[in-house]
Design a protein around this nucleic acid. Structure first.
Lengths: 189, 189
DNA sequence: CAAGATTGATACATCAATCTTG
DNA sequence: CAAGATTGATGTATCAATCTTG
């Protein structure tokens, strides 16, 4: 294995010709396809499972996880939106529906009355913790059991390289271990 | 770089304890998050661009690409569905709407009158070729310009390892260079 | 009865206003 | 006017029948 290039050249693309205007090769496109296919299939599986067992789409799970890791389990909506790559509109709708279930509450910030903060309720946290069990089992089967430790690290490295500069990836969903002890993941191991 | 484990152990998970029932560590979960975040953000960008410029969601683009690479630009619906991880229902709806645009036609197979074949029309192919230009430019900026050749290979390897056993990943979207010369990607380079 | 596909109802996502506050 | 957020209309995805053919 490893027919990869020799010297660790950072930005591919401007090797010899202009980056823009050059079509992708079959091989390049294939790399992209494998990436998209695997994430589609994996997330698809998880999404179906979450809908079956908890009646939520995968995207909501992301919202819940992020909220659970914030101080006070609270986030400004605009923050939450950019971190999770939700539009403000989409987020607003989602919060409404999660509010109906008693999982979150929305409160207007008295200081800046344009802004709104969402808080994950105790009920919401309980639901999340419950959901997380099944999610983790599936994740182990579908993801970790299929990859060697080296592959996981390689994947991690490549994906981290992809993030900077993307949309709201300043403090993205992908940020490392959260500042706050995650209620849904005790120290582990 | 490379704090990865020493010996190339294939199946992580059954290291010392049973795979199922063991919670994920923070580090493991973080690897997953980076993977999901990057694919969400990347596909999200492409999706927005495709909607703006071609008025189609990213998932339709996938359907078009797969169709374009099939012999006669034709596929059985059930095949197409499993390859792209569409449900039959979702596919049927999508084909209806793409049919409205004159991009595909549906024909019942005379031999097995339960089955239906979809064909990408000339107009559909033309549209796809047009769409592909912008798509490739974006892909270079967002994906290939951010990764070294080694990282691309690493990503490819890991993602390929993820696919087998997933849903309809027998001859998945991720299969290597197609049997048929892809109309949308001439020899390249 | 199973496989392939379609349809209509419901749920979620997107888009284009709109509203309020700074 | 810009930032943050909400709402309603439209489009797409999902789910639960339903239909036909093998």
């Amino acid at each position: 294995m490893s027919d990869a290039a020799g010297p660790p050249q950072r930005p591919v693309g401007r090797s010899g010709r202009a980056s823009v205007g050059r079509a992708l090769t079959e091989l390049e496109f294939d790399s992209w396809r494998v990436f998209v296919a695997s994430s589609r299939l994996l997330v698809g599986e998880l999404d179906r499972k979450l809908r079956r067992e908890a009646d939520i789409p995968h995207s909501w799970f992301i919202l819940l996880v992020v909220l659970s890791e914030r101080p006070e389990r609270t986030a400004r909506q605009s923050d939450l939106a950019s971190v999770t790559d939700f539009s403000l509109s989409r987020l607003s709708h989602a919060i409404n529906r999660m509010g109906d279930r008693g999982w979150v509450v929305r409160r207007t910030d008295p200081n800046d009355r344009r802004a709104a903060d969402v808080t994950l309720t105790d009920a919401g946290l309980a639901a999340l913790i419950d959901i997380t069990r099944g999610h983790d089992v599936a994740l182990r089967e579908l993801f970790f059991d299929r990859l060697s430790a080296a592959e996981v690290e390689a994947l991690r490295g490549a994906c981290r390289a992809l993030l900077p500069g993307l949309d709201g990836a300043s403090e993205t969903l992908a940020a490392g271990p959260p500042t706050v002890k995650s209620p849904i993941r005790p120290g582990a191991d």
